[in-house]
């Protein structure tokens, strides 16, 4: 934790320390063979944690809260859900 500066100023993007992935009860799993790299999942992900890589979409599970919007919005049904085992 950083010290609080005058006026409550803090560093940009400091939230990245928080592992919101711990909140998840379902995990989205991308089938890279089906993914057409359209980017819709990354556009609609509220948690800025879906990235489109060379060979398809990739979930950053450190942050993914498991809302499953990406599954709902993927036009080719390349993403499915799995129950998160903890």
């Amino acid at each position: 934790m950083m010290d609080l500066l005058l006026g409550g100023v803090c560093k940009a993007g400091e939230s990245k320390k928080l592992e919101t992935g711990k909140w998840r009860s379902f995990r989205p799993v991308v089938d890279r063979n089906k993914c057409i790299k359209c980017g819709k999942c990354a556009d609609y992900c509220p948690d800025s944690c879906m990235e489109i890589k060379e060979d398809g979409a990739e979930v950053n599970l450190y942050y993914c809260k498991g809302c499953l919007i990406c599954i709902r919005e993927c036009p080719v049904k390349a993403i499915t859900k799995e129950v998160e085992e903890k």
């Binding site: 940009a12 928080l18 919101t20 509220p46 948690d47 800025s48 944690c49 450190y62 942050y63 498991g66």
Partner: peptide, 9 residues
């Protein structure tokens, strides 16, 4: 940035 505390979805 990710790590924000909005509800899922």
């Amino acid at each position: 940035a990710p790590g924000h505390r909005a509800c899922p979805g």
